[in-house]
Design a protein around this nucleic acid. Sequence first.
RNA 1: GUGGGUAUAGCUCAGUUGGCUAGAGCGCCAGAUUGUGGCUCUGGAGGCCACCGGUUCAAGACCGGUUAUCCACCCCA
Length: 423
Amino acid sequence: MQIKRPKGTEDITPAQSYKWHYVEALMREICALNGYAEIRTPAFEHTELFHRGVGETTDVVQKEMYTFDDKAGRSLTLKPEGTATAVRAFIENGVFNEPQPTKMYYFTPCFRYEKPQSGRLREHHQFGIEAFGASDPSIDAEVINIAMTVYKRLGVDSLKLKINSIGCPKCRVEYNKKLKAFLSPKLENLCETCQDRFNKNPLRIIDCKEERCQKQIVEIPFMLDNICEECSDHFDKFKEALDLIGLDYTVDPRIVRGLDYYTKTAFEIVTDTIGAQGTVCGGGRYDGLIEQIDGPSTPGVGFGMGIERLLIVLEKAGIQIPTPPPMELFIIGLGEAGLKEAVRLIHKLRDNNIKCDKDYMARSLKAQMKYANKMNARYITVIGEDEINNNKIKVKNMENGSEEEIQLNQLLEYMKNKQQEVK
RNA sequence: GUGGGUAUAGCUCAGUUGGCUAGAGCGCCAGAUUGUGGCUCUGGAGGCCACCGGUUCAAGACCGGUUAUCCACCCCA
């Protein structure tokens, strides 16, 4: 039986990887511009990190984690998301001793044991950023702007930004009371999951898609209408900052993120072009998280952006990612002497940053021409006995078919000039 | 975890009410008088028709199971 890739995973083949390079390079550029530096962290962590960081009541922790014991009996878990790890590394490496805020980004695989569908994998990749140490609402807006800028620069302008405030622990206590008071008379009309949510995390009931639940909660009090003065003030200034940047948004009191650590700002960037899984970026503020996992009391805000979903958005929008630059020169060696000269030359040219190649398949001249054409080589040259003896070669422009005769020992200079012309 | 769709060449797919030596396009390889690509033409390689069992004289087609994959729910990026 042929071995196949595990369910919900994807291979990124050489013919596809340039797309990843392109979007990652763009993300790095935008991060650098905004003062965010990369952090690289392990793909797995002690399981406890996610129990404490992501939250016991979340679906992610309850049923989606890839957890296993290593040979010494430690419980480890493949990262289901990026923020908890970033926070752990921030604390562990004492990064809070450096000038604040700490602004960083990462690319990471994330693993969740889910049933795959369009835009949903068991291993997916996230581009994420986190800003630690600042509670200023303008940094919430900065974080979101980075996400929006990535898409904007790629040519996507059809996305919608939805924002909400889900309060802080202080106002949430009051709100939960209010929620429960509202819900308890309707409790038996709610679905099973919501009845469970009622005790563990009533806020999530707002998010339920069950029709019977939606019917019951049309007049449910929203967190947004019940946040404390501090949170309300933060939300106002946050919106103001979005306005100053010029970002369009809609306030959606229904946004409740699925991870427990969020406070105040919560946001989603959504599209309706890629199927049911339309959230292309999600994030928010998590002012209690760092303390929660034994770090100094430090506010934070960040997002995760799914790279696979981003690529689907681009594909659906018909946006072409630029292909890598073509080969400058393909050298066709003929005869023993010509083949040797081809080997010598391609390495000499490569040492001088000329992208070039030769045949390795013992192909005929014609077949090599065809191959060079398929590789989109800009120039080709044929080198055999005569060329070597006379020190003269013809370099052919593959775009227009024209040929120029030059001296063999001038090939490097000739190609350098051609390279200059392009730039 | 629940529901529905689909499994035939590297890729995209045909295969008529069960009757083949299982096909096409693209891609790959080779050639079209021996040192010049793209277009065209010719040829070739490549399939246990997902797997296991059943019905039948006969199964790629029908039935059952398994697995994989796609889509949706839940949830999320």
